[in-house]
């Protein structure tokens, strides 16, 4: 399988922060969610890819071409920053046509391309609007259209759903999916929100402290985190055992033990939170560890704070690796989820 983008040993040090070394590969038309806490180097990585930041070391290859030293305008990489940063002196159509003017497309063709992409993202009625009056979701769509209209071979989206309210967020996610389905542009989404990761794509790379922690299909990353950081960031806790011998118990795998069922853990119920679609139980074990269980809302009926609660584990615990030893190189999409060790 061919590779569209490959990043090899990319590092960048700025002040106290060190990005990388990061190695990563992306296939044509693939979608990757880059997930991690704020300040983890996600945006810096994107800016290295689009040429707005210069890495200290490492190579970036795009379609077999080494683009590491090319300026942004010669990379064929679209970048949509977190704040939409539309050009305030141009209207929506002017913003979207900006790059097309730069590559010297004739006016007629330019107008057709702009109309096409506005239509695709459902913002055609906004074409003549000033950017100042746009809502957050509209502005993000215009910014996306402005990059997409150039048909880049790689599209970088920094927090495309951040700062939008629930409905705008869902419809923006839908727009992103539709845009991807009709253009099949390879895309990297950056987000710090694990729920957004589910909304966006199938492959997920987790990043923290400037380094990749895990990379694989999203179900795999959530179900079988590679190390303690990923388990705690995605699962919300439930890391048991001692250093070097850690295991992860998915909150979804824990249920109050029914009579006759094996009680793997016995502790005291300290908190019950109904989150609508599911409920969360916190159970303090005798050694002080607090376990999190995600159960159907119906399962919390009759449970009282402070009462003893035995928990049944429906799947075996997942062993965790060491944070330091994970150094992924992802040669091609579709390979098994987690590769450990060098």
């Amino acid at each position: 399988m061919n590779t569209l983008l490959s990043i090899e040993g990319l590092t960048l040090a700025r002040g106290g922060f060190v990005l990388g070394p990061v190695s990563l590969a992306l296939g044509p038309g693939e979608r990757l969610v880059l997930l991690g806490p704020s300040g983890g180097g996600k945006t810096t990585l994107l800016r290295c890819l689009c040429g707005l930041a210069a890495p200290d070391e490492g190579r970036i290859r795009l379609q077999g071409r080494d683009v590491s030293d090319l300026p942004p305008e010669r990379r064929d990489v679209g970048y949509v920053p977190q704040a939409a940063t539309l050009f305030p002196h141009l209207d929506v159509a002017g913003n979207v046509a900006f790059g097309l003017r730069s590559i010297g497309l004739p006016a007629g063709e330019r107008a057709a391309r702009v109309a096409g992409v506005l239509e695709l993202l459902g913002i055609a009625p906004l074409a003549r609007r000033r950017t100042a009056g746009l809502s957050g979701g509209e502005a993000k769509r215009v910014a996306l259209a402005r990059s997409l209209v150039l048909r880049p071979s790689l599209l970088l989206l920094d927090e495309p759903l951040a700062g939008l309210d629930g409905r705008a967020r869902d419809s923006m996610a839908e727009a992103l999916r539709e845009a991807w389905e009709s253009t099949r542009t390879a895309t990297i989404h950056v987000t710090h929100d694990r729920e957004e990761a589910w909304l966006l794509a199938g492959r997920c790379a987790v990043m923290d402290g400037g380094r990749l922690m895990q990379d694989g299909p999203i179900e795999e990353v959530f179900r079988r985190p590679a190390n303690r950081f990923v388990a705690e960031f995605l699962g919300g806790g439930n890391v048991l055992g001692t250093e070097g011998n850690l295991v992860y118990v998915r909150p979804e795998d824990l249920v109050p033990a029914a009579p006759g069922e094996e009680a793997h853990y016995a502790g005291t119920l300290t908190a019950v939170t109904d989150r609508g679609a599911f409920a969360e139980l916190r159970v303090r074990l005798p050694d002080g560890t607090v376990l999190l269980a995600r159960v159907p809302p119906a399962a919390i009926r009759g449970l009282a704070h402070g009462s003893p609660l035995p928990l049944h584990r429906r799947a075996p615990p997942h062993p965790l690796g060491d944070v330091r030893t994970f150094s992924p190189f992802w040669p091609s999409p579709g390979s098994p989820a987690v590769e450990k060790g060098d």
Partner: peptide, 12 residues
Amino acid sequence: ELEAVARTLRTS
């Protein structure tokens, strides 16, 4: 940042 974005839009 506006200039930076313009650069990613194939603009010198």
